[in-house]
Simulated scan of single mutants.
Amino acid sequence: MTEKETKENVVKAGRRLVESGLITRTWGNVSCRIDENHFAITPSGRDYMSIGPEDIVTVSIEDCSYTGTIKPSSEKGVHSAVYQHNPDIHFVIHTHQENASVISTLGFDSIKIASEDPLLGNEIICASYGLPGTKKLRKGVAEALKRSKGNAVIMKHHGAVCFGKDEEEAFKAALELEDACEGFIINRYLKIEQRNNYNPDALRQFALSHMGRSRLPQGEELLQSFCNSERTENGFLLYEKSGKVTEIRFGMPEDAFNGEAKIHNEIYKKNKNISYIIHAVTPNILTVSLAGIKLYPFVDDFAQIAGTKVGTAVKPSKIAADLKRASAVLFNNNGAFCCGANEKDASAVSMIMEKNCKALISGTLFGTIKPISWLDRNLMRMVYLKKYSRQINNNMDK
């Protein structure tokens, strides 16, 4: 395969990675070996649905050097470690897939899986934690690869790296890893509760009891409607789940619109940087919103995208103020308001909230799980706000 053909394959695989749901926006990357000395990798902070072969970067396997003005993914060191470990590997994907990310938060150095898998073996190794893009992360993955007999390694508090002799094998490893990690959590629940059948609502109830609350939300405690909205020049459009769209203008009397619209109105008035709001009400987010807690980053992309912590507002009047310090806020018994400068940003916040809530819920099966350190989560949030989010938005405007 020529270098040009390799880059074309990386572009196609990047789009496939987004469409598969294994990553959010640009949080993940793809590479393909060109020869014994080089690999081609996706660029840093670029929308994979809009890049072309000319945007793919050739990187040295030995020292991660590259030429040109386009920066390769910051995780090029992780890919390099995989290629150095096994010359038969020709394709690598780094994912932030949900179940593997949940396992990454539990503190294990490895997990045993129920039955031996052709691509995973019977044990999945978890690499030690390192901040994204650092030599520490690369070293941790390199050490984990020495212990691994499969085609996937979990990176603590971060995600997974999956690989194969070709694209199909790498993607198959990622999907099998997701199933294996889900099975590990389910089997733990069945063992603790001495049940034969898995019920996700029962697991959430189990988790809630361990968070100091006795029951899941009841219908009478919920808002009458859950709406998304989008800022306009003089107000915002309120999108109800029924499909109804209502135009709200700033300055309208508050008795002219319902309670949900009042919350959105306050958010927009007090947070000029917010232009899109998603009211997320998945079962996992609803469960954590009932616990009345501060939600800390168990996966490190939560620190980047959502904030160093996300609080629970008991009163509607507190929601807008809490969003000055984070991109999301839990609302007592009513899910979370996830916000961004546009719909894609708000969707990314909603997705990472779901993953972090699932990590917390699953973590109750294994005792107390620890978030990433205060220093690491603040470093990640600072870098994201000052550098990475600007880079993404600039690239998306091209």
Rank of each mutant, 00 (worst) to 15 (best):
A291G: 06
L119M: 06
V30Y: 11
A170I: 03
I274Q: 07
L177A: 07
I285C: 05
R15M: 07
T105Q: 09
R195I: 01
N199R: 15
I278E: 09
G251D: 08
I392N: 02
A359I: 03
R231W: 06
V102F: 02
A142S: 15
Q224T: 09
N342Q: 12
M155I: 13
E169W: 08
E178I: 05
T69Y: 06
L360M: 13
D63G: 03
G107D: 10
H94S: 01
Y268T: 05
D55F: 02
D63A: 13
N334D: 01
D47Q: 13
I267L: 10
T282Y: 02
K387H: 14
Q304V: 01
Y189V: 00
K294C: 12
G292W: 06
G311R: 13
I23F: 07
C64S: 12
N334L: 04
F108Y: 15
E343P: 02
M49T: 13
V349P: 01
D397S: 10
S31D: 12
L295D: 06
G121W: 03
A174C: 09
D55L: 05
V310Y: 05
S115W: 12
V18M: 11
T26L: 11
A207C: 07
A336Y: 04
G307Q: 02
L379A: 08
N234V: 07
T2E: 09
S317H: 11
A291Y: 05
S242N: 12
A127S: 15
F108M: 15
A40F: 07
E193A: 14
Y48R: 06
G311Y: 03
I51S: 02
V299Y: 03
E123R: 15
S110C: 14
W374Y: 14
G52W: 07
D345H: 15
K315M: 11
C32K: 13
